[in-house]
Write a protein that binds this DNA or RNA. Structure first.
Length: 490
RNA sequence: GGCGCUAUGGUCAAGCGGUUAAGACGUCGCCCUCUCAAGGCGAAAUGGCGGGUUCGAUUCCCGCUAGCGCUACCA
């Protein structure tokens, strides 16, 4: 083949699309785009029990959402299809027959029970539990007997003894394995479906994959695959095993660590650009101090040479920070679209609004823009615009209203507010300044009582931003209600 | 148990024999400010442990330890 870079992403459609899978996909995609090569999307669905079309669709949707596309593979086709393993059974069979004929593989009639027994016995002796080759040299008579019993055989690969297997790995360097540590492994299950370690070789070879970039968990399986490459006379690709993504407790990411699937992050209102940026920085570092990268910049900067060997802990705080940077870059319209599903879920809008009401919602949502890391945080951030009935957050807040000067301040506010010609931030700010000047009070003594009376809280967005959005009437009502609750009379 | 990979601050990490050991997230402090957030400034690591090689090691080698992975008719 030529020197074209051909990489692949080959997920198993067996559940939610994991964030670690997304990172593998991203590295492959970046490498393909960087080099002008091709990315192939292949579906490894040989686990009939757990694979589902729904899961495959979910993976493809997630990849697209993250901004990744593929040049060959399911849906788009290509010269080396089909791209779903269950649709390539004939191809595998052809090679299996060849291996069988050459004596490089053999039928194994052992049952699960027999295998388990053998394993237990070995463990008891303190030996390595592995298949000892019981069916390696069955006579035709024995085979006939098993067949007569109705036993369905698996096909095992005959692992040669005393062989040093070299795996050339882009990120780990050369790794050597001893074939004596590998038992004859199953390449075709009793139902005729090939196993992962077998199908992956035939597929990668027949699809002319030049670089196999995948998660580190596959490194120990690679010598098995190399054996098959050799047995079939295939040329081996270059491997690149990228480290695993760990949870906060340094164990493999699982549900216990919070959201682990791409879809969950999408639903929480994270941005694809944020996820991509974060994932790229997990196990890869640029040759600069830059932290924020557009997808184009990632393509520009990416290189396998700068991929780290050590496993990386998934740090949600960093993801949040990165995503927040992208949230802030959004224009008002895009931000509102992100907010919408969460606002609807919170019951703050229906999605049917139009005209003035919609315009008001947009303004309200816009106030959250610089303050949230992801979409799901938006409702809590604008909660005070929707809840006129509130309690003081604590005793301290209630205490603020007991100050001597409060009636004067609030009184002035209630009197002057309706007189404003235009109700906007500048006007409200001006009014506050006037109150401050006439009462000769410190800013805090003016703002804090108003804030507490208006929201019940001592914290929150800028008052000058809130009042215009609340309007004169609601501002008045809320303030009066709070004073009454605190037992203050004007 | 065997084999393999990995090991720089809480986290992501730069560094590829001689550096004041970058930068970012997070944390803490200060400034700004009605508050929170944002923003600005600043603080905190002697490099898992023990040997070796070298004039000199975080950087190279070995051992130990730890974490993870593989050892499936799961991928």
């Amino acid at each position: 083949m030529c020197n074209e870079v051909r990489v692949r992403f080959a997920p198993s459609p067996t559940g939610p699309f994991h964030i670690g899978g997304a990172r593998s996909a991203l590295f492959n995609w970046l490498l393909a785009r960087k080099t002008g090569g091709k990315l192939i999307l292949r579906i490894e669905d040989t686990d009939l029990e757990r694979s589902s079309r729904e899961s495959e669709e979910n993976i493809k949707a997630a990849l697209k959402w993250l901004g990744m596309d593929w040049d060959e593979g399911v849906d788009v086709g290509g010269p080396y299809g089909p791209y779903r393993q269950t649709e390539r059974l004939e191809l595998y069979k052809k090679y299996t027959d060849q291996l069988l004929a050459e004596g490089k593989a053999y039928y194994c009639y052992c049952t699960d029970e027999e295998l388990e027994e053998e394993r237990q016995a070995l463990v008891k002796e303190g030996k390595m539990p592995r298949y000892m080759g019981k069916c390696r040299d069955l006579t035709p008579e024995q085979i006939a007997a098993y067949e007569a019993e109705g036993r369905k055989p698996t096909v095992r690969f005959r692992v040669p003894a005393d062989q040093q297997i070299l795996v050339r790995d882009l990120v780990r360097g050369d790794v050597v394995f001893d074939s004596n540590g590998i038992g004859d492994f199953v390449i075709v299950k009793s139902d005729g479906i090939p196993t992962y370690n077998y199908a992956v070789v035939i597929d990668d070879a027949s699809m002319h994959i030049s670089h196999v970039i995948r998660a580190e968990e596959h490194l120990s399986n690679t010598p098995r695959q190399c054996l098959i490459y050799d047995a079939l006379g295939f040329e081996k690709p270059v491997f690149g095993h990228i480290s695993l993504i760990l949870g906060k407790d340094h164990t493999k990411m699982s549900k216990r660590h919070g959201a682990t699937s791409v879809d969950q992050y999408r639903q929480l209102g994270y941005l694809p650009a944020g996820i991509d940026n974060f994932l790229a920085l997990l196990g890869w570092a640029p040759n600069s101090e830059q932290e924020l990268f557009t997808i184009e910049e990632l393509i520009q900067e990416f290189s396998m040479e700068r991929v780290a060997k050590n496993p990386a802990v998934f740090d949600i705080d960093k993801l949040n920070w990165i995503n927040q940077q992208y949230m802030r870059q959004l224009d008002a319209e895009a931000f509102f679209e992100i907010a919408k599903p969460h606002m609807i879920e919170a019951g703050y809008m229906t999605g049917e609004e139009e005209g003035e009401k919609l315009a008001w919602l947009k303004k309200v949502v816009a106030t959250a823009k610089d303050h949230v890391a992801f979409g799901a945080q938006i409702p809590a951030c604008v909660e005070m615009y929707f809840n006129d009935e509130f309690d003081f957050e604590n005793e301290e807040a209630a205490e603020v209203l007991k100050a001597e000067t409060v009636p004067t301040v609030i009184g002035m506010l209630l009197e002057e507010l309706p007189k404003l010609e235009v109700l906007d931030g500048a006007a409200v700010k001006g009014l506050f300044k006037t109150i401050q000047k006439t009462t000769k009070l410190k800013g805090k003594d003016v703002f804090m009582p108003i804030r507490v009376a208006l929201t019940g809280n001592q914290h929150g967005p800028e008052l000058a931003e809130m009042v215009p959005l609340l309007g004169i009437e609601r501002t008045g009502n809320r303030v009066k209600a709070s004073l009454a609750k605190a037992g203050i009379t004007l």
